[in-house]
Write a protein that binds this DNA or RNA. Structure first.
Lengths: 108, 108
DNA sequence: TAGAATACCTTGCAATACAAGATATAAAAA
DNA sequence: TTTTTATATCTTGTATTGCAAGGTATTCTA
């Protein structure tokens, strides 16, 4: 297993959380979200992001609006809903607990 | 998505790490590993653990020995290999980086 | 002798992330 | 004008993972 796979395996399961974190501050379109994730050293590709955003939208966590762009095709700006904010709070708690669990396991 | 699913989704990807953490301290058989995970609030079931241990053994990260038990059937004690310890170091680094990335995303 | 407790393992399913490729718009270059 | 480049969106197929459910085997106890 290459080092890359180690990191990519660990990313599984927290991407939903990451998306909600980003959109909790301001609306964004997919490519911009990918750029933000990269800036935080979370490498994610398009084939991962698009289905994920659609899933979260279908769950009512996100909504979106189209906006024209002078740089190319129109952009789909996603923004978080009230339900999404509740979910984010739950995820904050879950993340804290996970970090705590790993801490217990790692340091005896 | 129920609160349980939020936590279970986040657990994905760190179970390999958890197993190596536990076995880095002392050898153990599957049921004992599950008990340790439960003690750290990481709920995992047999159907998850057995295939996972077999995978890690096939990757050369673990090895095992049989030991008779007076309480029932013989136990398969797994222990970490040198390769497993290297892997654990990589996972420590990956975990630290992941926590760091989430921190960046969450706190602006 | 039957049941309970302990331990191992497998099968089939659903969900996730990724690689690869398809489609569409607008600007720039030929 | 036509082609290329850049920017966007999205889909399809695949591998992996974790889980629910069920199956097998050993030892002790009632």
């Amino acid at each position: 297993m290459a080092e890359d796979n180690v990191r990519s395996q660990m990313r599984k399961g927290v991407l939903d959380y990451c998306i909600l974190c980003i959109l909790s501050r301001k609306e964004a379109y997919a490519s911009a979200i990918i750029d933000e994730l990269k800036a935080a050293d979370m490498i994610v590709v398009e084939g991962t992001i698009y289905p994920l955003l659609i899933r979260q939208k279908n769950q009512g966590l996100l909504s979106y609006r189209w906006e024209e762009s002078t740089q190319g095709p129109p952009r789909k700006y996603y923004f978080i809903t009230e339900k999404g904010r509740s979910q984010l709070e739950e995820m904050d708690a879950a993340w804290t607990e996970l970090v705590d669990s790993i801490g217990k396991l790692r340091n005896q």
